[in-house]
Write a protein that binds this DNA or RNA. Structure first.
Lengths: 350, 350
DNA sequence: CTGAAAGCGCTAACAC
DNA sequence: GTGTTAGCGCTTTCAG
């Protein structure tokens, strides 16, 4: 350290961190000499070690990156989180631990993150990195899923109720044969294929709580309407491609050609399904009702019947939970509101 | 440090970092005791201080966050960078220093970032944070702009040539009255308004090199075709809203109703302009030719005549430059290829 | 294969 | 308003 320019290290430190602790004149001189000597200012790492604050929060992304970066809802969440970090002058450290990477590498990355707290976004309940991030013993906020993580705060919505409301809407229109297109239900690729009808085993014990809750929501509504919930055809799209929804729609209609409504657990799925149906000359909602979930701008502008959830707000809340922890120190649960949007893609069955 | 479980600190350290340096049995015992004692493993910050490696790269974003998160081209860049970081097990630290924040706060954030290198994405040549990040004396990669930063590597395209090629295309179709819709040309909001014709002063000395080069490219082509480059109507959109392109189109057509071609420096601008024109009942390309820049998926699918640039690849390259620096240690310049896409939005003037 | 000692660069307490 | 001292938690020689 350049204490040798003329004064002690404290003075240097003060020059940078406490302008009021020394004469403006001296401070000027210190800074000038520093610049001249090429001293880049206090080392942030050393400072972090001493102050025990890293000045950043970690965002652990366990899904493949192209997944997160292609879903507007996920991006909105990140934007909201980034925004709340910017507000308080914190950095946001993306820790990507997708399937392209060995678990040990990923573990190392989580362990190496110099952060003051973690946000976990939408992980499966058996995610291998969850124990690792818990081990860090830092403030932790889980967004969306898993729904229950010991010691972690949570930000999410009532997926079951929201999806149930959507299913009520569909059932009230008169639909009885329903297909549900869902994102992956487990970390492992299903034997049946990348896009396939989920076998009862897999659909019965989903490792992604959000998907599970939404399935349950549909079944709740079916039961309430006297429809056998076992009749629901669930198609799982394991990957996240622009055409996934279309493929899933095709699989669903093959599995049960009498389906009159396709409910999707994400707008991106629904929009892709609509593209597929249009290409096939199938009219929406005349011949088939399609519903989504998320309320992304594209869905709204295309008139999709969907559930709007406040994705940006989720990010902001997650940030806030980290930046201004509750006085009790106990984890907090925030359940945000959703809104059913009746668009132009749902109508009575043909 | 929990050296007191039974052995020395070295042994603990080795247990975590050098499994081969001690008996598997002892290692087991150490790890078990650690878990029992609730020792979360080596502190990443202390380790970074000692090893002089932070395990992360910083991404400095000087534009407002909603700007970056609403432009697919910018997102693709981030995705590419994140991908290359994931590959090598590095984190990606977002340092947002937008205009919502005081310069001193932003400076502090840049100075506080515990990273091994920085990427600066698309900043103005007079950005106040540029000197700060340079002061850090870390490996630095600038993407897009400014085109020349001392000591920094650069990843970008030949904006001038790419835009010139597009202008040639437009001129060859016969257009002579051209409007150019561009992103902001300076950090300060122009006096004329958020969306306004850029006065010669402002258009003549743009602080965003990319925009400047693209303007120059259009003028090059005009000159080559014997058209007075001063006739070009340049409309600057200072902010980045979904309707910005439409507003800019309106301003351009008001300034010169004889315009037959609207060239845009971004697809998002062009698509918004198309929406506006459609709402006004103006046919593209029948009555007006519209061109874009970037080659985002939406533009391609809507048949926009545009320039495709490899945004994801830019991110990957930027990451690579940081992760595997040249052996010479000298800054490197990478100029990526672009491709002119002749879509369905350009045609002969009416 | 294991231990002792040094020190990364900084800031917080406290004395002057 | 300025200097002295101690130590954040770790890894890295170097000896045993």
């Amino acid at each position: 350290m350049a204490a040798e320019l003329k004064v002690s290290r404290t003075t240097i430190s003060n020059a940078y961190n406490r302008p009021d602790q020394l004469s403006a004149d001296l401070r000027e001189r210190v800074l000038a000499t520093a610049k001249q000597l090429g001293y880049p200012g206090p080392d942030p790492v050393a400072r972090s070690l001493r102050t025990r604050r890293a000045g950043a929060v970690g965002l652990m992304i366990t899904e493949p990156l192209n997944y997160s970066f292609s879903d507007p809802a996920a991006l909105d969440f990140v934007a909201g989180l980034a925004e709340s970090c910017e507000e308080v002058g914190q950095g946001l450290l993306l820790v990507a631990v997708g399937p392209n990477r060995s678990v040990s590498d990923g573990t190392a990355a989580v362990l190496a993150a110099g952060v003051d707290g973690f946000v976990v976004y939408s992980a499966s309940d058996d995610d291998p990195y969850l124990p690792v991030v818990q081990q860090r013993a830092l403030p932790l906020v889980v967004v969306d899923q898993p729904k229950h993580v010991a010691g972690a705060s949570h930000v999410g919505i009532d997926d079951r109720a929201a999806m149930r409301a959507m299913a009520e809407h569909v059932l009230e229109l008169g639909h009885r044969e329903i297909g549900l297109l869902t994102m992956r239900l487990g970390r492992e690729r299903p034997d049946a294929g990348v896009v396939a009808v989920a076998d009862p085993d897999r659909a019965g014990t989903p490792h992604f709580d959000v998907q599970g809750d939404r399935i349950q929501g549909v079944r709740d509504a079916m039961t309430a309407h006297g429809v056998d919930p076992q009749k629901l055809v669930i198609v799982e799209s394991f990957e996240h491609q622009p055409t996934s929804g279309g493929l899933a729609a095709e699989v669903a209609l093959e599995a049960n050609p009498r389906i009159t409504a396709l409910m999707c657990t994400a707008d991106v799925l629904a929009l892709s399904a609509m593209d597929y149906l249009r290409a096939r000359g199938i009219y929406v909602p005349g011949q088939l009702t399609v519903t989504g979930f998320d309320g992304i701008p594209d869905a709204i502008s295309r008139g999709l019947t969907t559930v709007r959830q406040p994705s940006i707000e989720k990010g902001r809340r997650a940030g806030r939970l980290l930046h201004q922890p509750s006085r009790s120190g106990l984890p907090e649960i925030e359940v945000l509101d959703t809104e059913l949007i009746r668009g132009r893609t749902s109508g009575p069955p043909a």
